[in-house]
Structures are given as C-alpha cells and as structure tokens.
Simulated assay, not measured.
Amino acid sequence: MFDWSQFWTWFYLIFLITAIPVALMIILEKRSPFKTAAWILILILIPIFGMIFYLVFGQEYRKRKMFSRRGIKSLKAMRRLSAEQLKNIEQNKLISLAGLQNQAHLIRLLLNNSDSLLTTGNTLHLLKDGQQTFDHIFEAIEKARHHIHLEYYIFADDKIGNKLKELLIKKRQEGVEVRLIVDDVGSWGLRKKFFRHLQANGIEIYPFMEVRFPRFTSRVNYRNHRKIIVIDGKMGFIGGINIADRYLEGLKGLGHWRDTHLQIEGDAATTLQVIFAADWYFITKENLYGNNYFPPLTDAPGVPVQVSASGPDYSWKSIEQAFFAAITAARKKIYIVTPYLMPRPS
C-alpha cells in the first residue's frame, strides 16, 4: 500500500530545497515590490508548479540578451571610478570639497544605482525653448573638431531636420567624425533616402531597434527616448527637445510646442558620452574609447553634475528612485514641470 505520509514528507522537503533559492532569485532580480510579492505568492500557493511557471515565464532571458552591456570598455572604467567615488564619499572627502553635504544621500544613491559619477568642472546653460536650443546646438556643432555624436527619439525630415543634416554633412567633409542614432519608432517618418544621403557622405547613422513587423514583435515596446548630443567629449546637450519644426513653429490645432534643454560644458559631457557609447555598442558592437572620446576627468571648480540614465538595460529604476529620494528629502519647496504626470495609484 502506498505510503502518502512519506510522499508528502518528500514533497515538502523538495519544495523547500527548491523554493528558497528561487525566492531569493526573485528578490535579487530587483523588480518592483508588487511583482516580487506576486511571484513569491504564486511560489507559496502553487508548490512546485509555481516554481516551474516562474522559471518558464518569469525570467526575462530575452530582455537580458537584448540589453547585455558586457564588453563596453567605457562602462568598465566608469564603474571603477564610481567605486572610488563611493569610497571617498564614505570618508566625506568628496562631499566636503564640493560643498554638497545636504545632497550626500542623493549622490550616493545615483553612484550605487547607475554608476553616475559626480563631476564638478562644469558650466551649464538652461535653454528655455526650441529657438534658443537649436541656436546653441548649431553654434556648438560648427566648432566641432574631432567628433559629433547625436542620439534622438524624433529626428524629423523637415526644415530644421534638413538644416541640421546639411551641417552634419559639412562637418563630415571637414574630417569630423559624425555618428547618429535615431529611434526607429519615434523617427518612423524618416525615409530610406534620408539615411542613404547621410551614409553616402560618410556619416554613420543607425536606427535603434528596427521594427519591421510591429504587431508581431515586442521590440516596439523598447524605445529610446534620449535626446543627446556630445561634441568632442567636452560639450553636451540633453533635455526634452527633439529635432523637429514643432519646437519652433508649433503644431496646427495644438499651438506652441515648448520644452526645456540643457547645454553642458565640462566633465559631465564625458559621462554623457558613456551613455551614447553604450547605446552605440548595443547597435554596432563598436567600442568607443580613448582620450579623444573620453577626456580625462578633472577636479576643476564649477557646477557639480551627475548624469544618470535609466531603462530596460539598467538593473534599477535609477531616475525614478532619485526623484523619490529628492522629493522625500525636501523641507521647503517642490517644483515639478512635466508634460507627463502619471503617478501610480499607490
């Protein structure tokens, strides 16, 4: 006669041996607390089968493979430097030198969750609309001597887009390296002719995660919303303004299209370059490294800046965490300007 008591003893023993490591895997995967709790609940309520269900459907193998950041030389150097900065922060050297004692918790958070180096030798210009932004961008590109790197969600085939295209071609003919990444969904309106014209003039341009059959692929969900320019590793632009006429002329029925941009001159441009280099490597498998792309960082006086990035290729929601930490630490005022305010119900 079958001994059910012995069966259940072995069943629960096997369950405990396998479930505990899987539960630890779920916790260490750095998901949102809601997803972590849901998977652990499934693991408890459906023994054995819950574990199999997680291993088949809960692991993000494809996403990990798609966004692997291994082999990027600039990232390795950045991680080494961020580890050194964390050590200096713990010893209070870096914070006191920069006069940032009140922001120590935020600096430490960004170093931990996204290797965001703190740089001090920077000059910043806040650009309040499209006209101001494009004027500064065109002026900076005119002065480029070694390379121009651009990464945009929307690069439109319109007046400002073609004006920038002609300037990039001119700089390439002067011997300046030009690399351009455009998001394949955000810049869906760009025709092959536009790409071929740039490529024929020696400019390297690639779409980010090309989508051929949007209804049959998850790639349409992984989009690149960055608006980045890095010039000679010393000058950078980042913010909310894409390359499109709408930021100058508005849109019919919607009116003026206003956003904000930031011009960075100094060491923070080098850290902005790391973000571009990681995305360039993801697309082309070409490593960008050396002093021409990453000038040595200095301890020069100036505005302190940390450049942080976030997305499916990062382990943590670093920008969200930084916003949360900054807001919770506020004591007097909180100003928020955003076109997208969609807080979670919780």
Score class of each variant (00 low, 15 high):
F134M: 05
D135N: 06
D135F: 01
H136Q: 12
H136N: 10
I137F: 00
E139H: 07
A140G: 05
A140N: 02
A140T: 06
I141P: 01
I141Y: 03
E142C: 04
E142Y: 01
K143L: 01
I148L: 04
L150R: 00
L150M: 07
N162R: 14
L164W: 04
I169W: 00
K170A: 04
K171V: 04
E174K: 11
G175M: 06
V176K: 02
V178Q: 11
V178G: 05
R179L: 06
L180F: 09
V182Y: 09
D184M: 02
D184T: 10
V185M: 13
G186H: 01
G186P: 08
S187Y: 00
G189T: 13
G189E: 15
G189W: 07
L190G: 06
R191C: 05
K192Q: 12
K192E: 12
K193N: 10
F195H: 07
L198D: 02
Q199K: 13
N201L: 05
N201A: 13
N201T: 03
G202C: 05
I203C: 08
I205N: 04
E210D: 13
E210R: 13
E210P: 06
E210M: 10
R212C: 03
T217S: 15
T217R: 09
R219E: 15
V220S: 07
N221G: 13
R223C: 08
N224A: 08
H225N: 11
G233R: 00
G233K: 02
K234D: 03
K234E: 05
M235F: 02
F237G: 03
G239M: 02
G239C: 06
G240F: 06
I241V: 08
N242E: 09
N242L: 08
I243E: 11
R246D: 12
E249T: 14
G250L: 12
L251D: 10
K252L: 07
H256W: 11
Q263H: 06
I264D: 00
A269S: 15
T271D: 07
T271I: 13
A278Y: 05
A278E: 15
D279G: 14
D279R: 12
